[in-house]
Amino acid sequence: MQARVRALETILTEKGYVDPNVLDRIVDAFETKIGARNGVRIVARAWTDPEFEARLLADATNSLGFSSPVGAHLIAVENTPRIHNMVVCTLGSCYPWEVLRLPPVWYKSAPYRSRAVIEPRAVLAEFGVELPAHTRIRVWDSTAATRCLVLPMRSSGTEGWSEERLADLVTRDSMIGTGLVKSP
């Protein structure tokens, strides 16, 4: 594959369609900048700022003050003791990378894409998450322009914590819905 990619890059560069220096920068942006810590910050802020939380849940796309706005329609969905939200893209790899970086390999894999919509509880068990039987599971299949961010439940025992301290409890998987936040 490496040789095949290099060949295509050579052709496109020789023809003037791409600039290799720009390609370097794109890789760097995805590795180090795009989406890093955005989701974590959003969740910690929503936990400490009820007004922001309300705006986020009502209209996530326009509630975020990033310099790199989410052009597609972002939906934030709240986990509660009664309902657990979980996100998948059965058709490919749609994912809110502006807030969570690029998706992990398992998110794009056939096992997750095939199973999340039909047996989410078994999928959650593989991530070490067991929910009470009465907790409803709501799976969001990202089939069109919308992208989903799960707002996980805040751990008990964190009353009075600062946004920064809370942010350390937020895991990437908790914002996809395949994990829970860390305990304090």
Partner: peptide, 16 residues
């Protein structure tokens, strides 16, 4: 085959 929702047989998820 890209339309995978509900298919069986792909095995465990395998987080890294």
């Amino acid at each position: 085959i890209h339309d995978m929702g509900g298919m069986h047989g792909f095995g465990p998820i395998g987080p890294e």
